[in-house]
Design a protein around this nucleic acid. Structure first.
Lengths: 148, 148
DNA sequence: GGCAATTAAGTTGTGCACAATCGATCTGGC
DNA sequence: GCCAGATCGATTGTGCACAACTTAATTGCC
């Protein structure tokens, strides 16, 4: 039982280390575009949404990040000219996050990013899909248990 | 190809989300002991080492963290009375990180932490081992490629 | 219609992560 | 023995993450 405490036997450390290693892969690639990894994730959501600009809390729900993380991050994306934040006319509490022309255009320029990163993992497509599905299941199990 | 940009199709997001979800599982458990997750990882290494106290850079090699992260973290562990930092007599550049009696004793009290966390993932033992091995392989592939 | 409860976003404070830099110490080649 | 280069840890600055709190706007209940 004591052996379970050994670092390399723990899935949790493997997950933590893999997550940071992957961020290391992203960093130099995203640097070319002046972005950080969480900023890139926000853009992925915006690109996926197309025309209907999500609110800050909808972004938060998609990425599971709160306003404490998103507010300053979105300000930096706005300062970079990729995003605009506008108070909703119908509900003055809401802030809608939309893409600028530059933000939309960036999508094409970053087309090859996922492929470049996938290559760096050294895994085949089938393995990547299996890994992703297991991880998604872990994440969803954890979140489901937390809601109860 | 454009579909590859969709958030939920990316392994990378799955890894990032799973890592944060797992940290969420650790947080309330480690809170009982007044620890954060990275602090717990440092203790795991120290417990594993037993008597020979590692230096800051040896800790960094084990966890892949640099002094910018470890220096303040170790000061907090020292302030909590779990760890002592002593300049090596033989090489005044090195700082050896040892456990206090409290730090050693904590190991027993935290014996069930891995089990409690493993349960929260909702995966069986075989799945956990397979997931861990895949993740370890990803991490090592990435680090190997970076060294070349 | 009035007001308590809720919701939305922002702010503050703490603790990682990591790049870049610094000062002190050590090492090897001469 | 000396000194250029390397190593070690700490520090500074930026950017997440997240808890706790604040402010403003909205909703529902009566």
């Amino acid at each position: 039982m004591t052996d379970d405490l050994v670092l390399r036997r723990q899935v949790c450390f493997a997950l933590y280390a893999a997550s940071r290693a992957l961020t290391d892969v992203y960093r130099p690639i995203l640097d070319e575009f002046g972005l950080t990894y969480p900023q890139y994730l926000v853009l992925l959501v915006l690109w996926e949404r197309g025309d209907d600009a999500p609110t800050v809390s909808e972004l938060g729900a998609a990425l599971r990040l709160d306003s404490g993380t998103l507010s300053p991050l979105l300000k930096r994306l706005e300062a970079a000219g990729l995003v605009v934040r506008t108070r909703s006319a119908r509900d003055e509490r809401r802030v809608e996050v939309g893409l600028t022309a530059d933000g939309v255009a960036l999508r094409q320029r970053m087309d090859e990013v996922p492929l470049r990163v996938a290559r760096a993992t050294g895994l085949g497509e089938a393995e990547l899909i299996a890994l992703r599905d297991t991880l998604t299941r872990v994440t969803e199990t954890i979140h489901r248990q937390k809601e109860q």
